[in-house]
Nucleic acid binder design. Structure first.
Length: 274
DNA sequence: CTTCGATCCTGAAGGC
DNA sequence: TGCCTTCAGGATCGAA
């Protein structure tokens, strides 16, 4: 469900509720996430501490706590994080819940259990295995066509897989990879070794444009994405190709095609993308 | 080193 | 109606 825009939208929506809140208790109802939840460690890190600030790194949501602790949340494919009244009924698949002061609860719901909830020392975040090998932020200063061109040197394989490689650039998942390549007019099957400087520049620009626009529109809600207050996004109405197989291309009117690359759907217009 | 495929898991949707 | 298959927005691991 969530790529960079969805996690960023979530972070922003929680930013008006969580900073300043104190975590009174932590309930773990099911430890079986992508990595087993370490309940004792989570409780030790969070209980009694206030949330200072929220940050996003790649598709991870980071809640920095007092005394150099950080909660790390990842939504996987189906995760939801919302703030609700503390006495709200527990939802199915509500695996972890943080009771906050002011009668509120931060709930983590994840039917498929590909998500992640853990606590780390703030100082060691960068060297933690989840973060150590991540590439650059696509909305940051160091991401541009020249960066892509340098990282593509000596690589083969289709450009779509390259774009989705978190060791290169983070946050671009299956939806926004298709969308950025459509906007850049590049065929997702094209080998990265056969893309020139000018097209890398266009691709970098397209990635930034698509992600920024998706954040503005509150993310993409195909199925179940909601922000921290339970509101769905609206970028799905602005999608150019994703999930539009057989429908007319918004640029040329030709049919949008669906292909499969490394086991995942890719959508493209073969007339507009070369 | 890269690159590909399989895998974790549940639920929704479509075909018959 | 029900049963079966396929597919889904992520990340990791082992094999080639």
């Amino acid at each position: 469900m969530p790529e960079l825009p969805e996690v960023e939208v979530l972070r922003r929506s929680l930013a008006s509720h969580l900073p300043g809140a104190r975590i009174e208790s932590v309930d773990v109802h099911d430890v079986r996430l992508r990595e087993r939840v370490d309940t004792r460690r989570l409780r030790a890190a969070a209980t009694g501490r206030r949330i200072l600030a929220l940050e996003r790194r790649a598709k991870y949501l980071l809640a920095h706590l007092e005394e150099e602790r950080t909660l790390v949340l990842h939504l996987g494919m189906s995760g939801r994080v919302t703030v609700v009244p503390a006495d709200a009924a527990r939802l199915p698949h509500e695996h972890v819940a943080f009771t906050l002061d002011g009668g509120r609860r931060l709930r983590f719901v994840d039917p498929r259990r590909f998500g992640l909830v853990l606590a780390l020392p703030t100082a060691g975040l960068g060297s933690d295995r989840h973060f150590a090998s991540l590439g650059v932020e696509p909305l940051g200063d160091t991401f541009d066509g020249d960066y892509l061109r340098r990282r593509a040197r000596g690589r083969r394989g289709p450009v779509k897989a390259f774009l989705m490689d978190a060791g290169i650039v983070v946050g671009v998942g299956n939806i926004y990879a298709s969308e950025a390549l459509f906007l850049a007019g590049i065929d997702p099957r094209r080998s990265v070794g056969r893309i020139g400087a000018e097209r890398f520049e266009r691709l970098a620009g397209a990635v930034r444009t698509v992600l920024a626009r998706a954040i503005e529109l509150g993310g993409t809600t195909l199925n179940d994405f909601v922000d921290g207050e339970g509101n769905p996004g609206e970028f799905q109405i602005a999608l150019g190709v994703y999930d539009r197989e057989g429908e007319p291309c918004i640029a040329c009117g030709g049919p949008v095609r669906r292909i499969v690359q490394s086991g995942r759907s890719t959508y493209l217009c073969v007339r507009c993308q070369r």
